[in-house]
């Protein structure tokens, strides 16, 4: 109850016909969703979030998978330190990352830019990809890759034909995870974005602090449904690949 009920209530309120956040709603309507579609600020911010989420998710997946491969297969001096650096954004309180990136982004001219948001979100999501793909790589029998190499496969061919198919579910779930994290991210975005380039979470944040009407409940519902869809996709792919662990 305590865990699930709050979200369900927001979901219901988003279809309210009342002007205020009353529950239960006196009637139902789609007016707050129409409000989003009619309001360029909401649409623009949703579009900004998508434009950040896709490149950041893909960059984090490529870089994170490459790093996971290197850390699990190559012999790297100081592997523990490198692993620590790559996982650091997950451990360092996000407010610190936000302040630090805000500081240097202003100097670098990345403050308030899509590029800056993409860069920040890539950094923040690499740890998730690294740990997901890393865990999967540990389960792959290295002898399969050695066999491919001994049979004359180039390293790239061995990766593409042997390793990648085996770790693909983990790579995809890393990508999904990275995109959801990017889409949901608020604190860093709040620091490094401006009203012109503003992800949907920041737009929602600035509206919550003013007049709260059910439009925000509608936006919250959209954000929630996006995460839920991602979770369902993830649980289906992981079940198909026989991976039992139900965690993101």
């Amino acid at each position: 109850m305590y865990i699930i009920a709050p979200i369900v209530i927001v979901l219901i309120i988003s279809f309210s016909s009342a002007q205020f956040l009353t529950f239960p709603p006196p009637g139902y309507s789609m007016q707050w969703y129409e409000n989003i579609v009619d309001n360029p600020a909401w649409l623009r911010s949703l579009w900004t979030s998508l434009r950040v989420m896709l490149p950041a998710g893909i960059a984090a997946t490529v870089l994170g998978t490459a790093a996971a491969l290197a850390l699990n297969r190559g012999s790297i001096p100081g592997a523990a330190i490198i692993n620590g650096i790559l996982m650091a954004p997950l451990v360092v309180p996000v407010i610190i990352t936000a302040a630090a990136l805000f500081g240097v982004f202003r100097i670098w001219g990345l403050y308030g830019s899509i590029g800056g948001l993409i860069l920040a979100h890539t950094v923040l999501t690499i740890p998730y990809v690294l740990s997901t793909v890393g865990a999967s790589l540990q389960l792959v029998d290295k002898r399969l890759e050695d066999a491919a190499a001994n049979l004359g496969a180039t390293p790239w061919a061995a990766f593409r034909l042997v390793t990648l198919p085996l770790i693909l579910p983990a790579v995809l779930s890393g990508l999904l995870f990275a995109m959801v994290i990017s889409f949901d991210e608020l604190v860093v975005s709040l620091f490094i974005s401006t009203p012109v380039v503003r992800p949907v979470t920041v737009q929602m944040w600035s509206n919550i602090r003013g007049d709260v009407d059910p439009t925000i409940a509608a936006i919250a519902t959209l954000i929630f449904l996006f995460s839920l869809a991602a979770l369902l996709v993830e649980s289906v792919t992981s079940r198909n690949s026989g991976r039992k662990t139900p965690h993101p």
Binding site: A220, F224, P248
Partner: peptide
């Protein structure tokens, strides 16, 4: 499910 849901959305729910 809540774990995957944006902190902002969950906090907003409590705000309501």
């Amino acid at each position: 499910i809540p774990f995957w849901t944006s902190i902002l959305v969950r906090t907003f729910a409590w705000l309501v």
